Structure formats: C-alpha cells, structure tokens
Amino acid sequence: MAKCENCGQSMPEPTKYNLRPELVSALVKVYAAGGEALQRSDLDLTNTEYASFRKLTYWGLIENTTLPDGTVSQRLWSITEIGIRFIEAGERIPSAVMAKGGQYLYGTGPFVGIGDALPNAVELGLVAA
C-alpha cells in the first residue's frame, strides 16, 4: 500500500473496475424509466445491479440529480448525455476504469459499445442484429 508523501499515512491503491453486463443492464433500466431523478429502489434492480449501481458514475453514464434549488441529491440519479449516446447511438467507452477513493482516475482497456458490454443487447432491441 502506498504512503502519503506529506503525513506517511497508508493510502489505498487505485482499483480497476470493468464495465460488466450488470452495470450496463442497470443503465438500461435507468434509461427505460425516463432517465431523470430516479431512486435506485424504484428501478427493479437485481441485488448485483443495486450494489454496483454507483460505479456507473466512473464512466460518466449517470450522475446525482441537481434539484431545482441547485442542491445535488445523493438519492436521485439521472442518466447523462454520455449514457444516452452509449445506448442510443452506440458511443464507445472504455471497457474498464481506474478509480481510487470513489473518484474516477482514467479509462483503460479497449473501447466498447453497448453490444460488446451487454451480451443480450440484440434481444433487448438495443442494437441491430
């Protein structure tokens, strides 16, 4: 484990997160539900989708919703423009990201589209056969 240069305290190493099918499936559920100001509990997510949902922020696919008064809700989620383009237009994104302390660091691995990241994308009508 790395040490902080200033205080010598142990710091966590960056962690690699792969764009797994359950993440893409959760994103599709956000999109299908309208994409704006949604609670995770309203999306009929599987346990795995629910537990890993927040990781979609590492790719910039979802974000916390900004309320009319300008505050950012920690409970409401919205799909981003990148998330919409990933689903609708086949935008390609990194297949993995590196993050540390809940913060995105950088993308890594080959770029993938929704058809690469979600094996049943054709069956769901998200990509052409």
Rank of each mutant, 00 (worst) to 15 (best):
D44M: 06
T66I: 11
R85Y: 09
S95D: 07
I62A: 10
D44Y: 05
I87H: 07
E123S: 10
T57V: 11
A121K: 01
F53G: 01
R75Q: 12
R20N: 12
S41T: 13
E22V: 14
G90F: 12
A37R: 13
G125Q: 03
S78N: 08
S78E: 10
G102D: 04
T48N: 06
G60S: 09
Y58F: 14
V122P: 02
M11H: 10
G90I: 07
P14Q: 07
L105A: 04
R75M: 02
S52I: 06
E13T: 08
A51F: 14
A2I: 15
R20Y: 13
N64H: 12
Q39Y: 06
F86P: 14
P12Y: 13
E49M: 09
L76G: 08
L43K: 00
S95L: 12
P68R: 07
R85D: 15
G109D: 04
P68N: 02
A33G: 04
Y58I: 03
T15A: 07
G90A: 09
L38E: 00
G60A: 06
A121E: 02
G107M: 01
F111M: 09
E49G: 01
L45Y: 08
P21E: 15
A37E: 13
G115I: 03
E36C: 05
V127R: 05
R40P: 03
L105D: 09
L38C: 03
A96L: 06
K55R: 12
C7G: 13
D116T: 01
G35Q: 09
A117V: 03
E63F: 03
V28L: 13
G83I: 01
Q39E: 14
E5T: 15
A129I: 02
W59H: 05
M1W: 15
D69V: 07
T46D: 03
E88F: 12
P21D: 14
A89P: 06
V24N: 06
N6D: 15
V24T: 09
G109F: 11
L38W: 04
A51E: 14
E49T: 05
R85S: 14
L45C: 01
E5I: 15
L23D: 02
R75S: 10
L67I: 05
L56C: 09
I114S: 01
L67G: 01
G102M: 10
L43T: 00
V112C: 02
L19C: 10
G107W: 00
Q74R: 13
